[in-house]
Design a protein around this nucleic acid. Structure first.
Lengths: 189, 189
DNA sequence: AACATAGTACTACAGTTGTCGTGGTTGAAC
DNA sequence: GTTCAACCACGACAACTGTAGTACTATGTT
């Protein structure tokens, strides 16, 4: 198997775009090659078969969705109150808007996870770890709210982002700032 | 186009199962025929092409997800307090568990909606209407909480069900009863 | 210069899929 | 008992897809 990392990554990024634009149904070797602008047959030089491709895409999505770290540090200079939690939630929404393709690809992969145990295990680890990290972060940073605040906010944000990406017009009529503020305030209790 | 309603519905139900089990990628005429136990070619006698099939499936999903009405009436005999809202939330979760295929199919369709305007419009109407109905119902029934209670609970429940269906192990370690109770209590404020 | 290696381009092929057409069956109306 | 429309089974076919194989190119090593 060929191992030009730059090219391989470019192919995976192309696969993410294809997933977002065409869905799992459109994810073919030829579609990836076309999207990446490489000659037909290239993707199959990098991924032996479709079963090997999907987990690789999933790993790439995970990489791309990692928060920057420096923006977190920046935020932590602010006072640790409710308005900071609100800011964090808005940051998450902004990241989703900025990289829609990645989130949509993850949604395709999550559905794929219902029938592929390897993807399911990897995603479960990622997401469960993410929730635990958030709970620990919230506590260590002395941000307001308890464990349940973080968990219920996680679900609400998941639902909100899911809705915004798949059926934007449902949320379009709502005041996003007000919505996030109320959700945070009540989740904190 | 053929119009034997019973057979058509059976084919659509088969399509829902295929969507849930194999994903949008596996939704082929032959797969539908096989799942419905009818001779190959039958589905194509009922749906001229794939673009006509998808909205039909979506309509059928919508039909199947409608709540029974009598169970609602039954619940309304109970005292209109927080515990009733908790009960309603548990009913929703139960319905999702009882008809996983339908919910999974809807998730596939929601992703399909990002690239098919007809499905998107239909789903947007359905979901937005559903939220408004819930808001009105909550108010008319003098259930506790305001509009924001209903909206934020809607998102939290969407996220929770999404998580439970796609990555059940993430939620498995949580105490579902406690989670729903806290979510309701805080959403009410 | 000769060679080895990794990466790349391209092609072939068998299996699958969407779609269309065609002929057969059923059952009710007359 | 003929007619007719609706329904059904089946096959054909071109287009597309996954996969494997093969030959070409670039680069570095000896």
């Amino acid at each position: 198997m060929v191992r030009n990392e730059a090219r391989r990554t470019a192919l995976l990024d192309a696969a993410i775009d294809v997933l977002a634009q065409e869905g799992a149904r459109g994810l073919t070797y030829r579609a990836i090659d076309a999207k990446a602008g490489v000659p037909a047959g290239t993707a199959s030089n990098y991924f032996a078969n479709r079963d090997e491709l999907m987990p690789a895409v999933m790993t790439r999505v995970h990489e791309r969705l990692m928060p920057s770290g420096e923006s977190v540090a920046e935020s932590l200079a602010l006072p640790r109150d409710r308005s900071l939690t609100v800011k964090f939630m808005h940051d998450i929404i902004k990241r989703a808007d900025a990289d829609k393709a990645c989130y949509l690809a993850m949604m395709e992969l999550r559905l794929e996870a219902t029938r592929r145990p390897e993807i399911r295990e990897a995603l479960t680890r990622t997401i469960a770890g993410n929730i635990e990290d958030n709970v620990a972060f919230n506590e260590e940073s002395k941000l307001p709210g308890d464990r349940m605040t973080v968990v219920s906010l996680y679900f609400a944000m998941t639902g909100l982002i899911y809705e915004r990406l798949t059926l934007p017009d449902v949320v379009a009529t709502m005041d996003l700032d007000e919505l996030v503020e109320v959700m945070v305030n009540r989740a904190i209790g």
